[in-house]
């Protein structure tokens, strides 16, 4: 239970870091990758990755983690 809480907090914190200055500024550059602007691609990719990790964190503990 606690480790789930720690995992979720860590993921949220990672999200805050990924989606803000200064890391964000590293991707706010001119240029494209596979035709898409770097910033656009980065934000959506990082976003999707975060969602996936949250899903995994909550899935893995799937059963029996209730009530406390």
């Amino acid at each position: 239970m606690n480790s789930l809480a720690e995992r979720l907090i860590a993921l949220a914190a990672a999200g805050v870091v990924l989606f803000n200055y200064p890391i964000l500024s590293a991707f706010a550059v001119d240029g494209t990758i596979a035709g898409a602007p770097v910033l656009y691609l980065y934000l959506f990719t990082a976003w999707a990755a975060l969602i996936l990790l949250v899903a995994l964190a909550l899935r893995r503990n799937g059963r029996g983690g209730r009530g406390g």
């Binding site: 979720l8 907090i9 999200g15 805050v16 989606f19 934000l43 975060l50 909550l58």
Partner: peptide, 21 residues
């Protein structure tokens, strides 16, 4: 303001990670 519209959805994503808590 370009990609700034996305903040309105990134914020909830971060909060959703903490929903369980």
């Amino acid at each position: 303001s370009g990609m700034a519209f996305l903040t309105i959805y990134l914020g909830p994503t971060l909060m959703a990670a903490l929903w369980w808590l």
